[in-house]
Design a protein around this nucleic acid. Sequence first.
DNA 1: TAGATTGTTAATCGATTAACAATC
DNA 2: TAGATTGTTAATCGATTAACAATC
Lengths: 217, 217
Amino acid sequence: MKKNGISKSVVKRLPRYYRYLGELLNAGVERISSGELSKRMNVTASQIRQDLNNFGGFGQQGYGYNVRYLREEIGKILGLTETHNMIIIGAGRIGRALANYPFDKYGFHTIGIFDRDPELKDMEVKDLHVMMNEELPSFINSHHIDIAILAIPKESATEMAPFLCENGIKAFMNFSATDLNGILPKDVIVEHVHLSESLMKLSYNLNLKKTDDDDVS
Amino acid sequence: MKKNGISKSVVKRLPRYYRYLGELLNAGVERISSGELSKRMNVTASQIRQDLNNFGGFGQQGYGYNVRYLREEIGKILGLTETHNMIIIGAGRIGRALANYPFDKYGFHTIGIFDRDPELKDMEVKDLHVMMNEELPSFINSHHIDIAILAIPKESATEMAPFLCENGIKAFMNFSATDLNGILPKDVIVEHVHLSESLMKLSYNLNLKKTDDDDVS
DNA sequence: TAGATTGTTAATCGATTAACAATC
DNA sequence: TAGATTGTTAATCGATTAACAATC
C-alpha cells in the first residue's frame, strides 16, 4: 500500500485553494503568483508553494501559476473529476435541507434519502421520494454509493453507521453528536460536522473577548 | 489586553471533552483518569492533561478527575454558563433547519430569523415568524444578539456580514462559501462551516484509498 | 538578457508525546 | 503507607516560515 505522505493540515487547505482559484477564474484572472494568492488568502506564499509541491510542480519560475490549470490539478487531487453518489440517512429538516443543497455543482449527487418514520414514506424531497430504512440494503446493492450522510440523532447514528458499513458504505459525512468511535471498520472514512461544537468555539472566543475588554477598561 | 495564550488546537478539543464528559455523566460515571478518557477518545493521556492544565489543575493525584466538576469547569471555559442569543440570516431550508436544531440545549437561543424575500415574510419557523432584512437594525438594537448565523449564498453574505457588523454584531457562524476576508472589523469572530469543502476532503480520502487499493491488487 | 518567481532546502516555531517528581 | 495518577518539565516530532539557487 502506498503510504499517504500528505498531512491532514495540507489536505484541509486544498478545498480552500480550489475555491479561491475558482473565484479567480470567474474573475477572468489567467495567472497568479504564490505571493498574490497569499495576500488574498491570508496565508504565507511559502505555505502555498510547499502545499502544492507535495503533489507536483504546477508553477513556472518567473511566471507563477496558471489559474485554470492549477485549479484543474487540485480538482483531480481532490477527486472532483469523478462524480460521487450519496445517500442521506434521515429525512428530517437537516436531511431535507442537505438534499436541496447545491452539492451537485462539485459532482456530489444525492440519489436517495431514507428515514425510519413511515409517516415520511414517499414524501417528495427535491427530485426524490423518501424511502424506508428497510430498503437500504437493496438500494445500496443496486446503486454505487460513495458517501452516506448521517442526518440523524446520535442514538440512530451509532446504530445505522455499522449497519451501513456491513452493506458496503465506505465513507460518511456525520452530522450527529458522536464520533462513531470504535464501532466502524478502520478503513471507513468519516467527516464530522459538529454544529453545536462550532457554536461552543464561538462562545469561547466571545467569552475571551469579553474578559479582555474588561481588562482594558 | 490579556494576551490569549491558548492555541486553537486546544480550543478545538474543548467541546469534544465536554461532550465525552457529558456522556460519562449520563452513564453515571463519577470519576475518570486521563488514561481512561484517553482510551475512549483516542487521544493520548498526556494531551488531555496538557490541555486541561492550560486552564488550571482540575484533577487530583491518585484519583483522577471528577466528571461532573471537570465538565462544569470546561463549560465555564467555553462560556456555556451564560445563554447566547442568535439570529439566523436566511430563511431558506438551511436557515429553517438550523432554527429547529436543538442548540437550546447548550444555551444558544435563536430569537429571530430574517430573509429578504417578501414571500417568506411572517412564515412560521419553530416559534418564530420570518422578518424582513429591513427590520434587522431595529431588532438588533432592541435585543442583545451574540451570534448571527449566515444561512445565505456567498453574494448575500459578503453584503450582509459588514452590514450586520455596523449594526453591532460581533460573531458569525458562516455557512456561505466565502471567508468574508478583509470585509469585517478585525475583532469580529467568525466560525466557518463549509459543507462542500467537507465533502471534498471525503472525496480526497476516497480517491486516495482507491489508489492504494489498486497498488495492492 | 534581466527580472520575477518557482521549487526546495534549511531554520524556526509550535504542538504533541514522554518521563517523572510531587502528592493525594 | 503503597499505589495511582496528576501536574509539569524535557524531548520529540511535525508543520510553518525563511532563504535562495534554479530557471523560466
